[in-house]
Write a protein that binds this DNA or RNA. Sequence first.
DNA 1: CTATTGATGGTC
DNA 2: ACCATCAATAGG
Length: 188
Amino acid sequence: MRLPLTFYRRSALTVARELLGKVLVHQLPAGRREGRIVETEAYVGEHDLACHASKGRTRRTEVLFGPPGRAYVYLIYGMYHCFNVVTEPEGIAAAVLVRAVEPLAGIPVELGTDGPGKLCRALGISLLQNREDLRGDCLFIEDAPSVPRSRIQRGPRIGVDYSGIWAQRPYRLWIRGNPFVSVLKPPP
DNA sequence: CTATTGATGGTC
DNA sequence: ACCATCAATAGG
């Protein structure tokens, strides 16, 4: 079953937690590629200085202000893409970045999926998928059992040091001990 | 093992 | 000019 609009309409933090364990699917001409989501980051709104929407409503960020359940894909460092899911009701600009998936099907063996840039490359996601409705037939997310809170670990988001206090908030979530998570936490 | 740097292009 | 990254390289 494909995740319904009501799934995405909730807060970014809730969606970030609930997306763990779900299956991201990209239907390509070459075949179907699937990965199980193991790491996410929540970007909680315009007031969140790490969220692209904090720069205001531009052509790039417009999709964040739109209805939930759409893809927000952007190019970073000229060579990588990042895939996000738009959350919250229309008018509230929040999203969840998918940072890592566990390969399930159709992923070329030589490509890693541990990191936002890598997983987009492995799943064939590019700017062409920006603004795409995730309940369509090409790019979507399949339901799967939720990961119990006891198996979820949290920490600061990666690469957002410019955002001051917001950089330290524990809005990065991952499945504890999963080998496909992008940055392993130092042992306790 | 950690630290640093170069690649590269859309957006503002 | 900046950047929600990665791979390669240099150094200890």
